[in-house]
Nucleic acid binder design. Structure first.
Length: 803
RNA sequence: GCGGGUAUGGCGGAAUAGGCAGACGCAAGGGACUUAAAAUCCCUCGGGGGCGACCCCGUGCCGGUUCAAGUCCGGCUACCCGCACCA
């Protein structure tokens, strides 16, 4: 009898051996085929690892381990995205330097990951808060600045009243701060911005060249929000000045019955003296500014607005004079901040016109109901009417014709717009990368010389943001006051820091050559390792991290620093692990499971197996301790195969097909995110061994190898105690033969008129006639009437159609 | 409102290309072992009917295509996740 399975002993033993043997160290032998597997590096929070973390880490660990066994040079790295607010907030509260907090958290995380037996190459660990790392984050920023892609602008930003920090749009959820849940208001501040909008088209086009799961591609496309239309100039009656609008429906130009500008539109200040109701407009603007984004969206359906009295516009195609209104349903940040309103064919305009009694003119016919009763927005079937030279054209033709006309007359042109906004890159916070810029009254913004990088984050007394919203760095006069590198006069350092997204926008490059002091990574390393072959991460990062890092990478490509335009060849996403009640795990719900407890009670191999077996990888799944027990039981049964181990390096005749089938299935499933069915196939295989009460050494060897990527410790131990040569992690991945995956005889179902009636066993190469004959014999008197059709699907079934 | 996803036993979930629905696991029930319990092993396990060989129904709902539909087509419903006045 084998000794009992002691997961604690086995796991500690092999983790130590792997460390000593540097088992998973990535080779610098660039002649081998490479495989770069990547998982999102975690933010080392104070709570430690969550049971959600091991799901993606185990999945790609399986892929990495399998690739090594297949002879690849594998890069599977890990690091820490360690700048950020929670650490800083913790530091403020407990008066501990964020550096110390980070160090402690990283140690804890690292210990937990180590206990799970991941095959990360720890010699390539990176940490975004390490000056040797953020030196290059700053370096990339300088490149962006020099390319004109980083600029400072007065921006209405999302201001968190509690964190006292500007937030990116993406960090505001339902009008409150994503982190602390406090109210977010608008506040105008001078901010560093990155021109991601300049890359909008490239970021869309790049998606066609990569293998991302569909929903990631769709979300990114929607987020970038490309739309094609036209800009049209409307004359302001009696003025030289034109009011420019953006529209995706230039074909409906004849139906424009009024215009709307956003409350912040400069037109209002410019013609202040001629506007008769300026006070009313100013009042409306005030109200709009006070509304939080949340309130604005809450009131989507209820349109408000004020007419500008004293100004009107002229429709350039028919000379019609129309009123101009202001309303907060028009956004200053999109298009030109002004629209032409065509109430007959735009839902929002229709609502607005109905509310304020503005005229509705039909210019696209085809609606079954009058446009006075219901808006008509169908662009596929409509025909133009009331539109002079456009009459009778389809919407598509009318669009082309009107743009031609506008361009001819010089009153408009086609135009592409994007929903994507530039990236607010400043944070008024301490725990981030200092922005390497010096502000000089004479010379403006002067970039630090690259030789002065890294610009170190100075030691400060207090990390509290100041009440006026400046970064704590602003109080460090010694650090702030410098001489201008350009003119030698007095100057000040930029005191804002970078957002957390900065360091994570390029970390995958650093892993290829993490100790390089001359460059962010050496050219040879980048040429060899890039692109990342498989990147897995959360859906929540689709429009933030994933888009930002693609932007930076594409920029670096354009600058000649990286060898390929897209950083990630393949992107997949895992589902969440929910609490046992099916709800998201959270402290307040009291349904949090700590991975340490599972590792202690059941072992890392059990946890890994369970998280892979829990369900489809891309769907969320509820935690079940009973499910964990089931996986533990499976590993126990694998362990006890030792007791029925029989001689023979090959496969026994009756299980040969099953072995070949299992190798084929497990190999394919590991590649296709179907870890659950791979494990099911292995469970099914060992059930066969137990039925026979014997497993040959050859069968055992194959099983251990297939299972090793999922449960590396127990399989390595069993490999050794069975006396197989060398280490399992160095063994070759098992091969299968296609012909041997097919059973020589197979039981097939027999249907009559599509209903199952019997079953027979036939040889796989039996011809149709004899199978049908055997089927009829098996059916006997169950087959009545005249046979009109006989169907034989080899290996599957026979269907006899009778009338 | 727009976009995406999901719907199969008591539960988690299987089912390449339309081809024996419910693999694998969990829970439950019965049995073996035990003084007993745990662990382990064996059996049963979608619903209904029949003494029985067997028969009928069944993959959210309604229709269609097909010899054959969980799978394909048309039309719905419910839930989940994004985005949300983007002209």
């Amino acid at each position: 009898m084998a000794v009992p399975y002691n997961h604690h002993e086995v796991e500690q033993k092999w983790q130590k051996i792997w460390d000593e043997e540097k088992a998973f160290r990535t080779s610098d032998d660039y002649s081998k085929p490479k495989y770069y597997a990547l998982v999102e590096f975690p933010y080392p929070s104070g709570q430690g690892l969550h049971v959600g973390h091991p799901r993606p880490y185990t999945a790609l660990d399986i892929v990495a381990r399998k690739r090594r066994m297949q002879g690849y040079n594998v890069l599977y790295p890990m690091g820490w995205d360690a700048f950020g607010l929670p650490t800083e907030n913790y530091a403020i509260k407990n008066h501990i330097h964020p550096k110390i907090v980070t160090k402690n958290n990283v140690e804890r995380f690292k210990g937990q990951l180590h206990a799970l037996g991941y095959s990360f190459d720890w010699e390539r660990e990176v940490n975004t808060t390490d000056p040797e790392y953020y030196k290059w984050t700053q370096w990339i920023f300088l490149k962006l600045f020099k390319a004109g892609l980083a600029y400072k602008a007065e921006m209405p930003i999302n201001w968190c009243t509690s964190c006292k920090v500007g937030l990116a749009n993406e960090e505001v959820v339902n009008g409150v701060c994503e982190r602390c849940g406090s109210e977010v208001v608008r506040k105008v501040k001078s901010q560093w911005m990155l021109k991601i909008t300049e890359y909008a088209d490239k970021l869309i086009q790049g998606l066609d060249t990569v293998d991302y799961i569909e929903r990631v591609k769709v979300s990114q496309k929607n987020w970038i929000g490309k739309s094609q239309g036209a800009e049209v100039d409307f004359a302001i009656t009696g003025k030289e000045e034109k009011l420019r609008v953006y529209t995706t429906r230039p074909d409906t130009l004849f139906g424009a019955t009024y215009m709307v500008v956003s409350p912040e539109h400069p037109l209002i200040e410019k013609y202040r003296d001629e506007i008769k109701n300026y006070d009313a407009l100013a009042e409306y603007r005030e109200q709009a500014a006070r509304k939080s984004d949340f309130e604005r969206t809450e009131l989507v359906k209820d349109k408000t607005g004020v007419q500008i009295e004293g100004l009107t516009a002229t429709n350039p195609v028919n000379g019609r004079e129309i009123p101009i209104w202001i309303s907060d349903y028009v956004l200053m940040t999109y298009g030109t901040g002004a629209i032409m309103a065509v109430p007959a064919h735009d839902e929002r305009d229709w609502d607005f016109a109905k509310k304020f009694g503005l005229p509705i003119i039909e210019v696209v016919a085809g609606s079954p109901v009058s446009v006075q009763e219901q808006v008509y927005t169908d662009v596929a079937t409509g025909t133009l009417v009331n539109s002079e030279f456009l009459n009778g054209l389809s919407v598509a033709d009318a669009k082309a014709r009107i743009i031609e006309f506008l361009e001819e007359k010089g009153i408009g042109h086609s135009k592409t717009n994007f929903k994507l906004r530039d990236w607010v890159f400043s944070r008024q916070r301490y725990w981030g990368e200092p922005i390497p810029i010096i502000k000089c009254e004479k010379c403006g913004f002067v970039p630090l010389d690259e030789s002065e990088l890294p610009l170190m984050l100075p030691e400060v007394e207090s990390y509290e943001p100041t009440d006026n919203g400046e970064s704590p760095l602003a109080a460090m006069k010694d650090w702030v006051n410098v001489t201008c590198p350009c003119c030698g006069g007095p100057a000040e350092r930029e005191t804002d820091t970078m957002p957390q997204w900065a360091g994570s926008s390029w970390y995958f490059l650093r892993y290829t050559d993490p100790h390089n002091t001359e460059a962010l990574a050496g050219k040879e390393a980048l040429d060899y390792w890039l692109p990342v072959d498989w990147y897995n991460g959360g859906m929540e990062h689709t429009t933030l991290h994933l888009l930002y890092s693609r932007f930076w990478h594409r920029f670096l490509y354009d600058q000649g620093y990286v060898p390929c335009p897209e950083p990630y060849q393949k992107r997949t996403s895992h589902g969440m692990i929910l609490g046992s009640n099916g709800e998201k795990m959270s402290k307040s719900r009291g349904n949090v499971v700590n991975p340490d407890d599972i590792v202690r009670d059941y072992g890392a191999d059990t946890l890994r197996t369970y998280e892979m077996f829990i369900g489809a990888f891309d769907l969320s799944a509820a935690w079940s301790e009973d499910g964990v027990k089931g996986c533990r039981r499976f590993l126990e049964r694998v362990w006890k195969l030792q007791d029925i181990l029989a001689e023979g390096e090959g496969y026994s005749a009756d299980l040969e097909t099953k072995l070949h089938q299992t190798i084929k299935k497990v190999s394919a499933d590991y590649e296709n995110l179907k870890y659950n069915t791979a494990i099911a196939a292995m469970m099914s295989l060992i059930n066969e061994f137990y039925k026979k009460n014997a497993v040959t050494r050859g069968e055992y060897r194959t099983l251990l190898t297939l299972l090793n990527p999922v449960a590396p410790h127990i399989t390595e131990e069993l490999w050794q105690s069975a006396g197989f040569e060398g280490r399992l992690y160095q063994a070759a991945w098992p091969q299968y033969e296609e012909e041997k995956t097919v059973e020589s005889t197979v039981e097939i179902g027999i249907q009559v008129n599509g209903k199952m009636r019997a079953a027979i066993t036939v040889s796989k190469d039996e011809d149709k006639e004899s199978v049908i004959a055997a089927a009829k014999e098996a059916l006997g008197d169950k087959l009545t009437g005249t046979v009109v059709k006989e169907i034989y699907v080899p290996g599957r079934l026979v269907n006899i159609v009778a009338k």
